[in-house]
Design a binder for these strands. Sequence first.
DNA 1: CGGAGGTGCTTGCTTTTGCAAGCGCGCTTG
DNA 2: CAAGCGCGCTTGCAAAAGCAAGCACCTCCG
Lengths: 137, 137
Amino acid sequence: MTDLHLGPVRLAQLGAYIREQRESAQYSLRQLASVSGVSNPYLSQIERGLRKPSADVLQQLAKALQISAETLYVRAGLLDGEQGAAAEDGDERRGAEQPAERTGVLAAIAADPHLTPRQKNALREIYLSLRGQEGND
Amino acid sequence: MTDLHLGPVRLAQLGAYIREQRESAQYSLRQLASVSGVSNPYLSQIERGLRKPSADVLQQLAKALQISAETLYVRAGLLDGEQGAAAEDGDERRGAEQPAERTGVLAAIAADPHLTPRQKNALREIYLSLRGQEGND
DNA sequence: CGGAGGTGCTTGCTTTTGCAAGCGCGCTTG
DNA sequence: CAAGCGCGCTTGCAAAAGCAAGCACCTCCG
């Protein structure tokens, strides 16, 4: 019963998220499979929550979908697994402050001259994921 | 020839790093195996660069060694693979600007009331990894 | 209506991951 | 000296990951 093991519900949620992102990007399953290098039957299984993809596969999908790998890792419980696990436990602390955009961290990330835009996006998504999980289900 | 595939050299480096951390923590191989939940023969193979561990295993090791999983993920090429690959080129610019601690991002992370200490550490390490790697180009 | 093309999925297989059982070695103790 | 213990490692195996081949279905076009 560790936070390292993704339950079937979490797997299904990860898969649904990936499908969501794919549809937002207006890719068919085969198209995303081709762009990402993951086989289409396996991608189908992932999206349906039947298989647990490795971090390598998540990285490939993230690249193809032009989202940060960290976003998928958080969803897969590979980053901040405890928070992820806590979130799964139905933590009721919903009231994450919306004004997250006003916090110093986001402003500082945006203003940082040493990061590329890509790095800023990755860091922002990680930060928002951390913020969101602390306050979400 | 993508950055997603860990070459044998990188695997050996990852393993050496894990062994280094283990020795710093003054664990024997069997002790770390026991604490982390990874079998001792498998840990031996990982440290010798013979096997490529999954993110789950890296997470278990990171927890047992009390380092952030992100640190191992970067080393394993699972985070910021491009920069990680660049780092492998043996760039000697280790001395990333120390004054990074003065930048708004680190200060903002430290001051952020919504993140747990653990989350702050994770975000800091990611940021510093990004900073350090950006400096390599 | 039939054919072509695209879709998502099923199945059986290969490769990879991760471990249990056990090995050889060196050190300590009686 | 022999036994016991801890060490790191080898080997063979089971489970899981990931894919190729092929299926059924749907839509569109001639």
